[in-house]
């Protein structure tokens, strides 16, 4: 495990070093492909950080806020779907249909309706999160080993008890799969909204910096966006390992 990580980091480092040497050697201009050092300068130089970090914070707020809202709504809908078949039968065609709508395409509409502030970006992030959480949570809440069902039935268990004793813990591995997919999509959603017209955020930085051919800044913004997604993902992975301590049944 640690060996894999070390190897991956080593490869990354080699890539950076060779790019640092190769880009000037081939005479590639900085606005096409900046050297790694110029990107790092954007991230590490205190004078230049001012133009980066607040935007990263803004995207983090929009992305994680949207993620929390989206995953809560997704899990809540999953609970309703699983317990009220009529609602599920009525709404699941809608869910499937909505899933096929390219969410990127509705970003301009959201801006029109909710303005170019934090709210729009959070809504966008939430929309990206809802579906993977909903779909995976429904699957998790549904699945249960028939033998366990038999056992609990023989104890004359109530539906409410069955939910706490079996369904909820059983659904957790599936729920975390949905959350992990949702977490990276949430950051993506926030950035997409920022592309479409915002005055803050990494998406905004990317749009502006490419406009001015300040490509090192673009790369720095991309790096920060990746780090955001990655840390949210790792946070969830850690949480998953902590909560689900038992081995998954075969």
């Amino acid at each position: 495990m640690f060996r894999h990580i070390a190897l991956a980091l080593l490869l990354f480092l080699l890539l950076l070093i060779s790019l640092q040497w190769l880009i000037p050697a081939l005479g590639i201009p900085f606005y096409i492909l900046p050297t790694p050092s110029s990107v790092f300068e954007r991230l590490l130089n205190p004078d230049l950080q001012e133009s980066m970090l607040p935007h990263a914070g803004s995207t983090a707020l929009a992305g994680m806020g949207g993620f929390l809202i989206g995953s809560t709504v997704g899990f809540g809908l999953a609970l309703i779907f699983v317990h009220v078949p009529l609602i599920e039968q009525t709404f699941s065609p809608w869910v499937v249909a909505l899933q096929t709508v390219p969410l990127v395409a509705i970003a301009p509409l959201l801006l029109l309706w909710f303005g170019n502030g934090l709210l729009t970006r959070m809504i966008m992030a939430a929309l990206f999160t809802v579906f993977p959480v909903l779909v995976n949570a429904v699957r998790g809440l549904r699945q249960a080993n028939p033998a366990t069902q038999d056992l609990l039935q023989s104890y004359a268990i109530s539906n409410w008890q069955r939910f706490w004793v079996l369904r909820l813990p059983n659904s957790l591995p599936y729920l975390f799969t949905g959350l992990k997919i949702g977490s990276t999509l949430a950051i993506l959603g926030a950035i997409v909204a920022e592309f479409e017209g915002a005055d803050q955020g990494l998406g905004f930085v990317i749009t502006i910096s490419t406009y001015y051919l300040d490509t090192p800044r673009t790369f720095a913004a991309i790096t920060l966006a990746s780090l955001l997604s990655l840390s949210l993902y790792l946070l969830l992975t850690g949480l998953e390992r902590w909560i689900i301590f038992w081995p998954e049944p075969a």
Partner: peptide, 17 residues
């Protein structure tokens, strides 16, 4: 079953992990 008079042991232990 409702009065919890019967109890099962299955081929597998069926413990909640």
């Amino acid at each position: 079953r409702q009065h919890r008079r019967i109890s099962f042991v299955f081929q597998k232990p069926v413990l909640l992990p």
